[in-house]
Amino acid sequence: MSDPTHMTHRPSGLVLIRRAGHPRQVGAVQPNYADDPEHSRQLIGGQTEPGEPPRVAAARHLLRETGLRLPIGRLMALDNTDARKETGRKTCQNHIYDAGFLEDGVPIELPPTAPGKKLPELARFRWLTLDRRHSDPPGTAYLDQYTQSWQGQHIRASVDTARAGDLAELHRGVPG
């Protein structure tokens, strides 16, 4: 196994959870460590451990970040992001898996504050609506309001592939 400190990219495992009875809504978490907290909602998941498959990482992050044990379904999208010199972030390949639909009333348990930290890793879980419709109730939280544009694009592409049964190959949320 190669030394993970010298890897040129970091794979991750993410999960798409859709709200049962509300097919236009997806689950997203808000990390406390984000540079832009207002637009930081993202899919549940994160980086793999050395030698860990992305599907296993997706299940591990789902349990740690929400307390949920859901079956990790098929791979719906691969989204490649570029390295960022200013932050030291490596190239990332996000593996986005289908975790199905979650019924209302199922408790979401965000992780507690880790020892030595001032804030927990995640601030909240929220259902985000993919697109605006005139029939939406006041206070509806929309994907475009709370995500960076590429995050919203890879979430939409994942929902589209879930419906079509395809695999989306993306670069920063854009097919290609």
Score class of each variant (00 low, 15 high):
1 M>Y: 14
4 P>M: 04
6 H>Q: 15
8 T>H: 15
10 R>M: 15
11 P>L: 03
15 V>T: 14
19 R>I: 00
19 R>S: 03
21 G>P: 14
23 P>F: 07
24 R>W: 11
30 Q>D: 12
30 Q>H: 12
34 A>Q: 11
34 A>V: 06
39 H>F: 02
43 L>W: 10
47 Q>H: 15
47 Q>K: 14
48 T>C: 15
48 T>F: 08
48 T>L: 10
51 G>M: 05
51 G>D: 07
54 P>G: 09
55 R>L: 09
57 A>F: 05
58 A>F: 08
58 A>H: 07
58 A>W: 07
60 R>E: 07
63 L>D: 10
63 L>T: 12
65 E>H: 09
66 T>D: 02
68 L>D: 09
72 I>W: 05
73 G>I: 08
77 A>F: 03
78 L>R: 14
81 T>R: 08
85 K>T: 13
85 K>F: 10
87 T>G: 04
87 T>K: 07
91 T>K: 14
96 I>M: 00
98 D>Y: 09
99 A>E: 01
99 A>H: 10
108 I>A: 09
108 I>N: 10
112 P>M: 04
114 A>E: 12
115 P>Q: 00
116 G>L: 07
117 K>H: 13
123 A>M: 01
125 F>W: 08
127 W>I: 06
128 L>H: 03
131 D>Q: 13
133 R>V: 03
134 H>V: 13
136 D>Q: 01
136 D>K: 01
137 P>A: 04
138 P>V: 05
142 Y>R: 09
142 Y>M: 00
142 Y>E: 05
144 D>K: 12
145 Q>N: 10
145 Q>V: 00
147 T>S: 03
151 Q>R: 15
151 Q>N: 10
153 Q>V: 03
154 H>V: 00
156 R>P: 06
159 V>T: 07
161 T>C: 10
161 T>H: 03
163 R>Y: 11
165 G>T: 06
165 G>V: 00
166 D>L: 05
168 A>N: 01
168 A>F: 03
171 H>V: 15
172 R>M: 15
173 G>H: 04
173 G>L: 04
173 G>C: 00
173 G>S: 00
176 G>E: 07
